[in-house]
Design a protein around this nucleic acid. Sequence first.
DNA 1: CTTCATCTTGGGAACATTCCCACAAAATGG
DNA 2: CCATTTTGTGGGAATGTTCCCAAGATGAAG
Lengths: 337, 337
Amino acid sequence: MKRHQVTIIDIARELNLSKSTVSRALTGHPSVNAATRQAVLEFAEKMDYQRNMLAISLITKKTNTIGIIVPEFHSSYFPKAIIGAQEVASKAGYNTVICQSNETYETEVANTKVMLANQVDGILVSITKETRNFDHLKIFQRKGIPIVFFNRVCDEMDVPKVIVDDYDGAFRAVNHLIERGRKRIAHLAGPSSLKISEKRLNGYTAALRKNNIEFDEELVIPYDLNVDKVKIYVNHLLNMDNPPDAIFAVNDPTAIEAIQVIKKRGLHVPEDIAVVGFSNDFASGLIEPSLTTVSQPVKEIGQTAAQLLIDQINRDVADWKTIIRVLKTELIIRKSS
Amino acid sequence: MKRHQVTIIDIARELNLSKSTVSRALTGHPSVNAATRQAVLEFAEKMDYQRNMLAISLITKKTNTIGIIVPEFHSSYFPKAIIGAQEVASKAGYNTVICQSNETYETEVANTKVMLANQVDGILVSITKETRNFDHLKIFQRKGIPIVFFNRVCDEMDVPKVIVDDYDGAFRAVNHLIERGRKRIAHLAGPSSLKISEKRLNGYTAALRKNNIEFDEELVIPYDLNVDKVKIYVNHLLNMDNPPDAIFAVNDPTAIEAIQVIKKRGLHVPEDIAVVGFSNDFASGLIEPSLTTVSQPVKEIGQTAAQLLIDQINRDVADWKTIIRVLKTELIIRKSS
DNA sequence: CTTCATCTTGGGAACATTCCCACAAAATGG
DNA sequence: CCATTTTGTGGGAATGTTCCCAAGATGAAG
């Protein structure tokens, strides 16, 4: 186990060249003799030479690395988005460093410090449900490091954002329930700190209004997205004097958990109570009854965000401050409604 | 948007100190005056100073980064394992760089080059189903960079490995089917290149042997884990003159797909044909009928692997060459059998 | 034969930091 | 009050690479 790593200086010494020439040969600079280049490349290959990106990045002030900060890894949403982002990034020659904030503000702040210390060229962020102060992200702006938000965005910062039309998706989902004859539709909503919760809630109320159904505050339960609590809320709804005949859940894990609870109580979905989710997670097609949900182009969201970030890094976009990409959702009607 | 990043030299100039002193203050070296340290820390904070890990790593020859190479991100297995690994790594002060090999040998090789160029302190690897040559991984050994394999391991390399007892898990799964009265048990197996496929197959045959059931080659179908093909295989099995009364699938996605195909043909699980999977993916508890499967402690696998790697980096373990951690599986009996 | 352009190579600064060595001032001890 | 230790600080090499400037060699043009 020898520790010393092969450097261009080793190669230079061995081949009686200067490190400059070796460097040029390795990077494909035109002004180096063909024979010399050949010799260098062969010798480098033979010695398992690997360029030291640390030194290169230190000089060029470019790491060819983008950071991705997401709140969690448990639902299929973020892994899928990351797949899309990585696809675009690696095609453009960028590596990715991924951090989970575990839905806590403090970890998110720590994550940003890591990104800064590692000199990433840009970051993709989806904030936690706790994040209300954005100073840790504004540092990037001040330092001129591009940011792109996706999914969970920050309105007070002028940077590109990639989202789906949550309002429209929710509206169509609730409208669909009403068309199916439902009159008392409950909404298991997300935390009010998140823009997406707010927009889905707005879509919900708008659909009610359009159909002249009175809004009942009691039927809306915002919660912190910790699925363990869904059981309590669903039971609470079912125990009401005038229980709902449908539930619109803020996301699929919530909807799936709700169905489980309803089934456990011996009630039937959708006969007794219909359920609609949001996101079209993998499991929603498998559960019995299969879940009606609003699908979003998750991978495409990741791809779009990464592309926007890379364009910004390469200064290929002019008015990036105002860019907001809103992708379309699609209502997928299955058996739960 | 100012480009110049704040360095210790800037701080030194401003405070009339040398960069050495500033460096010491920032790193918490004891031999620096309390007042001086205070001044430096305050000024650094005020200026959004962030230490440049590139420069530090270049000098210390330590990046505090570990690389993780996994074949895919689609099943819940690898994301879960990564969660475990990241948990341990970040607790030990390590960052993680994650690469997907997309199940192709070439991408895997490219991934290792990235890891080398970025000077990771160690790597966690689960190989692709294509990988038969291991030269790209042996480079790490030669350079003295620790490796730990998990899940999909390479037998010809003397490095720590973390696996589950696939043989035993498969044995118990098949034994369970036999106890339930099944006599013709098919096996949708994984590619023979993977050790885990082989071991699960061995467990399958051993269970048959123990119960004096004759092994029928026709009932074993090894395939490349591309779930789209499951439909063909299951239909093939069901169309046989003497069709099987049970299927043991090499993993859960395969089993779930098999159940869908069987249901689509109007047959019933488990009455007509029982199905057992392997891994206890999230979806296996939701599908109708719920899937009997062999659960593995996935997160723990990631944790164990990361811990082993970090111990190796810190030279805390002596005989690491021979370490093979075999974690236990558990048979989870549900409705599909 | 001189002049100038072209091709190829070498030398050295720069990047941000750590860490060893040196050294001055202050504190301690007899 | 002098010798010795402790405390705090500065200087500079080193890390591996790129990139600019200079310069020698070669060849072509006049």
